[in-house]
Each structure stands twice: as C-alpha cells, then as structure tokens.
Design a protein around this nucleic acid. Structure first.
Lengths: 222, 222
DNA sequence: CCAAAAGTGTTGAAACTACACCCATGG
DNA sequence: CCATGGGTGTAGTTTCAACACTTTTGG
C-alpha cells in the first residue's frame, strides 16, 4: 500500500475586500494567459517551497495592493481534481479586508480593478464559488465579531462604521442600537474628539489594540 | 518574476472524534517510521493527484475506522515551512464525528487507539496544535449548531444527546432547558416510542434528514 | 411498592427592538 | 438662523436561566 507520494501544485488565492463608492468591492485581475485568458480572476499565485501559506498570501496581497499589515484570514482550501484544466492544483483561499484609503496601485503589471460584489463579471476557474463563499463568510463574521473596522481607516466615526456594516450586511441598522452595542462590546476607544465636515463634529474612534476582536458572546447585529 | 512553480507534498490529516467511556476520544496512530517513530499522530496520508481533498480525507477515515458516511468537515490548512522535518509538507486537516458503535477496527495494519482528549500523549509534528484547534472548533460548533447528533447512533434518547453535549462542552446542562431548545430547533424527529433498560422507557429520536444542521440563529447552549 | 430514569411549566432577570427629539457646528 | 449630520433614553417584548416534582416502567 505504500506508494511514492505525488507532489501537487499549490496556490494561494486572496479575496481582497474593500469599501468603495458605497459598495463592497473585491479586487480582481484580468488573466493574461490561457486558460481563461481575458477572464477576471481572484489574485493568487504559487506557493514557494520556502514560504508559509500565510507568507505567500501576504506576498500576493502586497503585490496587488501595496498593503501588507491588514486583516487576513484563511478561508478554505479548494481541492477538486478538475478545478484547473491544466492539471491538479490545490488552492488555499484567504480573504483580506483593506481600508480603501490604504491601497496603493498594485506594483504588479497585471491589469487589476475593483468590482462591486453585486455586479461581478464571470470569473475564471472555480473562482465564482470561492468568492461566493468569501462573501458569505465575511457577512457571517461581521454579524458575530468585530472585523468591520478592518475595512475602515485607522480612525473613524460611529456613523462611518455603521455605514460599513450596512453595506456589507445589506440592511439598514438602527443608529441607537448600533452605537450601544458597539460601545458595550468595548472594542473601540476614542481617538480625537472631532473632525471637519458639515454639521456637528463627530467623535473619532480607533480599534482597541488590546481588545479581542472575536466577540464570541452573542450576535452583534440582528 | 515568472518562476517555475514548485510542487509540494500535500497530506490530509483527519481528527476523528467519538464518544467512548463517558469521554470525548480521538483516534491516534502510532508511527512506525522516522521521523517521530513510535510517537502518536493524527491519522493521515498523502493526497493522490487523482483524488479530491475530501476524497482523500474519507479514504483515510475509512481505512482507520471502517466508516465512510459520517460527518466530515474541513478544519484548516497548516502550511508552515518547518512543520515536517523531512521537507515541505502542507496538510489539509479535517475533523470527523463518528458514533462509537459504528467503528469497525481499522483495516490498516497500523497500530491505532482511542485517546481521551483530556489525557493525550505527546504527538508527532505539529499535531498537538492541530488537535487543540480541532477540539476548540468542535466545542464552538456544538454551541452554535446541532452536530452533536453525529457522535451518536442513528437513534438516541434526549438524555443520551444531553450527555453527549455535556461531555464535549465539559459542563452540566439543565435538562428542561436542553430539551426545550433541542425540540424547538426542530432538527430531530421521534423514532420509535421506547427502549429497554431501567426506569421509565424513553422516547427515541433521530436527526431529521430535511433539517438544516447549521442552526445559525442563536446559540443553542450557554 | 420501591428504585430508576423520563418527562414536564413557571417565574424573575436580562437582552433586544422600536422609536423621536435635541445638539453642535459652518455658512 | 438654518441646514447638516451627531448624539442620546425608554418602554414593551422576547429570550434566557434557574428551579422540583410527577410519571412510567421493571423487578
């Protein structure tokens, strides 16, 4: 029963989310080669023998966005035999949350652009499945934990945070209840008292470094 | 920047849980070769080029337990560079829940035995981490969803189900509240009215095939 | 009739939802 | 002084946890 083990191609794909133009957006790259030439795809690449999976994912992320130190989480590993027509490729999918303000154009020469998740092109490979799963997981996480911040700049107002949640979850939230829950969860702290703009100035907040982002206790939102 | 992609060794490891002797147990195998010879390890093996990850996991599961059609879920993919001293090996970890009654001795020649999760030997590779994560995830899933059934035979009493939850979660639960929540969740149905034994006969239940096991709504248990 | 396990309801506390007005600033 | 967005409290409802006794069977 002992066979010589076979080595497989292993890639990481990174679903990169941001908030842009009042919509949840995802970064896709246009493929320059067959198969699926000119189709849009989730950015990704092969894992080198001398780098961990997460290192590979961060490398991809940074190549595409210029951003390294953002929220990155392993999503799922996709390993159907026929998922790549060129041969057996296992892909470890990650998802990342980046503040749009932090993005610098990708250093990579590949053509890349943001797509609203509600208006996507047809994707290469099984990337439609991967993206659908990533969106589902993001919504789920937002309901139960506090990762929403990761889509915003370091400092933000409660209204901006609420808008982020509303965009991702696709539903309106009650202002008073939202603020109460966020503040009671004790995951943000004040960061400067005001800001420019119209109307009454808002308090700014930042994520508390010492806070446990995983608010396991109960659902944060309905 | 285009390099020749490197192929990696990919294994699946399957953390197999069961209930046995009033304890949560996990199946481990004793390694017959270096490295970590004579250490205990999570059962696993290489993924063949012509089988999906889940197929490979089910193959391992069946080799060790004789059981194929049980709950199996992908856990996480571990890919640090140095996790295997022989070289780069990425492992996709799964966890399985099997009713102890269903287990037939492994067909594999390897020495295997059940270990209570509270009294484990030192494990090979990074398997201590993998197992710790699997236990955490199992507890978490049990609180929020209804997978507890998967550790029991097809038909079971509510008392047996409650005991299963108590063993995994490591805490006593209130009988009346437990029954109310389980029955309101609408995931089990009656299956024969009674059974032999001491005391008053109990109703038997089975999992409802048409039920959605993922009870997303709210925590089932405190 | 006794031992053993099954089964069943209620009450007070906590959490949740819905809801409308005043506040601070810039122009 | 007005337009704009920021900020705040309460009441009714639902959910939750805590708790003890009666029922059914076998021996």
């Amino acid at each position: 029963m002992i066979e010589k083990p076979q080595r497989l191609l292993v890639t990481v794909d990174v679903v990169i989310f941001t908030l842009r133009e009042n919509d949840l957006n995802v970064l896709l790259v246009k493929r320059k080669y067959e198969p699926f030439i000119n189709h849009w795809a989730i950015p990704g690449g092969f894992v080198n023998a001398d780098e961990s999976l997460e290192d590979a994912a961060r490398r991809e992320l940074e190549e595409e966005t210029g951003v390294g130190d953002v929220y990155l989480e392993q999503l799922y590993t996709f390993g159907k035999v026929e998922r790549d027509p060129r041969g057996r490729v296992v892909t470890v999918a990650y998802f990342a949350l980046v503040p749009f303000t932090a993005v610098r154009g990708g250093s990579d020469a590949s053509e890349a652009r943001w797509w609203p998740v509600n208006d996507l092109p047809t994707l290469a490979f099984d990337h439609t499945d991967i993206l659908a799963y990533a969106i589902k997981r993001l919504r789920y996480k937002l309901e139960y934990s506090a990762v929403g911040f990761q889509l915003l700049p370091e400092k933000f107002t409660l209204t901006e945070l609420q808008q982020a949640y509303e965009i991702v979850l696709g539903e309106k939230l009650d202002k008073r209840n939202f603020r109460r829950k966020i503040l009671e969860a004790n995951i943000i702290e004040e960061a400067g008292m005001r800001r420019e703009g119209e109307g009454r100035p808002a308090r700014m907040y930042r994520f508390r470094e010492d806070a446990v982002a995983e608010v396991k206790a109960r659902r944060l939102f309905p």
